[in-house]
Design a protein around this nucleic acid. Structure first.
Length: 270
DNA sequence: CGCACCCCCTGCCGGC
DNA sequence: TGCCGGCAGGGGGTGC
């Protein structure tokens, strides 16, 4: 579910709701996430104040007043939503965090592909091993050019490799490649300098636009206030197999690689 | 190193 | 109506 625009939207919404709050109580109702929650997870968080909410790629970083970082990855179906006092837990609410203002930060994750950990900032950074931020100047045509020269991987696989660039998932890979006019199955090393520039430009434009629309809600995604995003209404290719391309009217095609679908226009993308 | 597969888990949808 | 396969935004592991 959540790729960079969704995680960034969650970050911004939570920032307004929980900065300065102290964690009054932690209830772990289901520790079996992608990796089991550490036995001391609840006691390590309890009593800490939340100073900052950051993001790296698809990870959220909650900076605590003891210098440690609470790391959260939402997997496919994870939600972090602040609810009012007294609301009953819902199905798949795995962690409930009571804040000093009485409200409750609920972690809900149907498929339990999410991840949580608490550690020192350097441990957390080492844990994730992420590449550059796509919206930072570090993600430049020059950077992508060096990453594409000596590989036989497809451009979509490369862009979704979190060690290369952090935050692009299956939806935005298809969307940005459409806007760049490059086929998902294109071997990355065959990109011209001009095409590389277009890919970088399209990446930044699509991610920024998606953040403006508060992310994409297909089935599960909600922000920190429990509100869905709107960017799914602006998809040009994702989930549109057989529909006419908005540029040339050719039917959008779907192609599967490694069990994941890529969507593209066979005439607008080369 | 890359890749084709498998796994993790739950829910939904379409076909029979 | 029920069952079954396929598919879904995530990542990680294996063996070739």
């Amino acid at each position: 579910m959540p790729e960079l625009p969704e995680v960034e939207t969650v970050r911004r919404s939570l920032e307004r709701l929980i900065i300065g709050q102290t964690i009054a109580a932690v209830e772990v109702r289901e520790p079996r996430l992608r990796r089991p929650l550490a036995p001391d997870f609840a006691t390590v968080l309890a009593g800490r104040a939340i100073r900052q909410v950051g993001r790296r790629g698809k990870y959220l970083h909650f900076c605590l007043d003891d210098g440690r970082v609470w790391l959260v990855h939402l997997g496919m179906t994870g939600q972090l939503v602040v609810s009012d006092p007294g609301e009953a837990p819902r199905l798949h609410d795995h962690v409930l965090i009571t804040l000093s203002n009485g409200r409750c930060l609920r972690y809900n994750d149907t498929r339990r592909f999410g991840l949580m950990a608490v550690g020192q900032a350097d441990e957390i950074a080492a844990l994730t091993g992420l590449g550059v931020e796509p919206l930072s100047p570090a993600f430049s045509p020059r950077y992508l050019w060096t990453k594409t020269r000596t590989t036989r991987r497809t451009v979509k696989d490369l862009l979704m490799d979190q060690r290369v660039v952090a935050g692009i998932g299956n939806i935005y890979a298809s969307e940005l490649l459409f806007r760049a006019g490059v086929r998902p199955a294109r071997v990355a090393s065959t990109l011209s300098w001009q095409a590389t520039e277009r890919v970088v430009k399209a990446t930044k434009a699509v991610l920024r636009e998606a953040i403006r629309h508060r992310g994409s809600s297909i089935s599960d995604y909600l922000d920190g206030e429990g509100k869905p995003g709107n960017f799914q209404e602006w998809f040009r290719v994702y989930g549109r197999e057989g529909e006419p391309c908005q540029g040339c009217a050719a039917p959008i095609q779907r192609e599967t690689r490694g069990g994941r679908s890529a969507f593209f226009c066979p005439t607008c993308q080369r």
